[in-house]
């Protein structure tokens, strides 16, 4: 006998016009970033974004295994995005699915532009992303954490990369969709974005839903505004990690 599937909320906005968790359309959920959470990884970071809990660990540059993937004129970036079985309401099978494989690839493409891979021929930089709890916008949060893990490794980077999801519900553009907003179907769209903030270059962009060009433009601008705030948090987290060592060092 099957379990009754999770229900959807009846309304996606409250009586007072705010979102169900009290946010305004352009409010981000709470974000907490921590650098260096994994002892063995060359670089690592954890992101707590709303209910999302995601850990990114990076190794490299190191030898490529299997050998045939190595390229003699450049290094490669390999990303593995995986969700833990208990990260979602209904247990997710541990076998990696198509969604995880697609996200692994788009996250890799989102991070590559900031790296100088040509400096590491025959080597690889490996990033492993493990989602411990998922609640909407995990690929964007993963990019935010993975960029910090790369910076934590001490390899040169042109910039950080910041991920943020925008969308619309009931045809209203909103920033940073929570899981239940993601699942809403009325006048809805979901657009994950990642950006190199310094030059405002977009490195990840996908769309699920139907939008007009005007709505698209609104959502892009909203994404950049949200990303700007997350970028500041990323920088703060990196500075905080190393500045705390300056004060007496105990």
């Amino acid at each position: 006998m099957p379990l009754l599937p999770e229900g959807h909320p009846e309304k996606i906005f409250r009586e007072d016009g705010l979102r169900l968790d009290g946010r305004k359309p352009d409010d981000l959920r709470d974000i907490r970033l921590e650098i260096g959470v994994l002892k063995n990884a060359d670089g690592s970071a954890m992101i707590c974004h709303g209910k999302n809990r995601i850990i990114a660990g990076a190794y490299g540059p190191r030898e490529v295994h299997p050998r045939h993937l190595a390229q003699s004129d450049t290094g490669i970036l390999q990303v593995q995005y995986r969700m833990s079985t208990f990260s979602v309401g209904e247990r997710k099978t541990p076998v990696p699915g198509r969604r995880e494989k697609e996200i692994s690839m788009v996250v890799q493409h989102a991070l590559e532009p900031v790296l100088f891979l040509e400096q590491y021929p025959n080597s690889t930089i490996d990033i492993f992303i493990q989602v411990m709890t998922a609640d909407g916008g995990t690929r964007c949060a993963s990019i935010t954490a993975a960029a910090l893990a790369l910076a934590d490794m001490g390899i040169p980077m042109r910039d950080l990369v910041t991920g943020v999801a925008v969308g619309k519900i009931n045809n209203k553009p909103i920033l940073d969709l929570a899981d239940y907003e993601d699942k809403w179907e009325e006048g809805a769209a979901d657009m994950p974005v990642a950006v190199m903030m310094n030059e405002k270059k977009i490195t990840l962009l996908q769309l699920d839903g139907q939008v007009s060009i005007d709505e698209y433009e609104q959502m892009l601008n909203l994404a950049l505004k949200g990303a700007e705030r997350i970028y500041e948090l990323q920088k703060e987290a990196l500075k905080k990690k190393y500045t705390s060592e300056l004060v007496g060092g105990r």
């Binding site: 002892k39 063995n40 209910k51 809990r53 833990s84 079985t85 208990f86 990260s87 979602v88 309401g89 411990m132 709890t133 998922a134 609640d135």
Partner: peptide, 20 residues
């Protein structure tokens, strides 16, 4: 782990296992 029915993270020294 907020979406697990039960969960724990345990460290012995620098070894860490998460269970959900």
């Amino acid at each position: 782990m907020l979406k697990a029915e039960g969960s724990a993270r345990v460290c012995i020294g620098d070894t860490q296992v998460c269970c959900g």
